[in-house]
């Protein structure tokens, strides 16, 4: 009995410790984003929202925020569409060498982003192609396409084959089958792929850093802010991104995934 209480107490203590470790930096980040002073480290001088005001007044930062959204959403849409079409093709038709094609589509997942970025950069340089948000987007599709393909492909069960056949049998062509039957049936996993892909693109640094020139994404802009050392403004933008992501996550958890669980 005593031993069980001891083990149980040990478990809860461990849980608390690891949670503290996980939350420590985030808590410090958010707390000192409200610092009334120039240094985001103790002592805490008092509560102020001046750094948030500074963030919203920073036109470069706001432009980077817009760029990030643009790149994240458009590259995720492209990744989902291409990934969906490829998954449909490979799951529904028997193609020669389909294992090889699956391997090729998944391959970028196993390669470091740095190497993907470097390869693209070398090639773009050799072809004298200018760097822009477009090239960042292309790079982000390269890393997100395998993800979208894998998620959507995994959700294409064989039990849906007859449902698609029925649609075809009733006169639908392939595009109508995909638009009216397959995509609505797979909507939960397509949305999961889309949001995951948005998250990855939104947060991606190295590709965005190496493949962009004048217009940059948010992580790259934050990176350049780090050169000025510890700064409560960096805390503020970091906290904003964190809170916005968490809000989005909670909305998804309670609306989208909550609903699919019921079905």
């Amino acid at each position: 009995m005593l031993r069980r209480v001891f083990v149980s107490g040990l478990s809860w203590a461990y849980l608390a410790l690891v949670y503290a470790f996980i939350f420590l930096p985030v808590a410090v980040l958010v707390l000192f984003s409200f610092q009334d002073g120039r240094l985001p480290v103790p002592p805490f001088n008092g509560f102020s929202t001046q750094w948030y005001e500074a963030v919203f007044a920073d036109r470069k930062l706001m432009a980077a925020l817009g760029n990030s959204m643009l790149v994240a959403i458009s590259s995720s849409v492209v990744s989902c569409v291409l990934g969906f079409l490829a998954a449909y093709s490979l799951a529904r038709y028997k193609l020669p060498g389909s294992a090889l094609q699956r391997g090729l589509l998944i391959a970028p997942m196993t390669v470091s982003y740095l190497i993907i970025a470097l390869g693209l950069l070398s090639l773009l340089n050799a072809l004298h192609m200018p760097l822009s948000l477009l090239t960042v987007g292309i790079g982000h599709v390269v890393i997100n396409l395998p993800l979208c393909f894998a998620i959507i492909y995994a959700s294409m069960g064989d039990h849906q084959i007859n449902i698609e056949r029925a649609a075809r049998d009733l006169g639908a062509n392939d595009f109508k089958v995909m638009a009216l039957v397959t995509a609505p049936m797979l909507m939960p996993s397509i949305l999961a792929a889309f949001f995951l892909s948005v998250t990855f693109s939104w947060d991606e640094f190295i590709i965005a850093f190496l493949l962009s020139r004048f217009d940059v994404t948010l992580p790259v802009e934050i990176w350049s802010m780090l050169r000025s050392g510890l700064n409560p403004k960096t805390n503020a933008i970091g906290s904003l991104v964190f809170l916005a992501s968490v809000a989005l996550l909670l909305i998804l958890e309670f609306s989208l995934f909550g609903r699919t669980k019921k079905q």
């Binding site: 291409l82 990934g83 079409l85 490829a86 449909y88 093709s89 490979l90 529904r92 038709y93 193609l95 094609q101 090729l104 589509l105 391959a107 970028p108 390669v111 190497i115 993907i116 470097l118 390869g119 693209l120 070398s122 090639l123 050799a126 292309i138 790079g139 599709v141 390269v142 396409l145 393909f149 392939d174």
Partner: peptide, 25 residues
């Protein structure tokens, strides 16, 4: 033929922007 058509965009994208750059590198 249709199946190739559907898989082609993703395959070409991966070839053009992943495999070719990698080989070039």
């Amino acid at each position: 033929r249709k199946a190739w058509g559907f898989a082609a965009p993703a395959l070409l994208w991966t070839l053009a922007f992943f495999v070719v750059p990698f080989l070039f590198m």
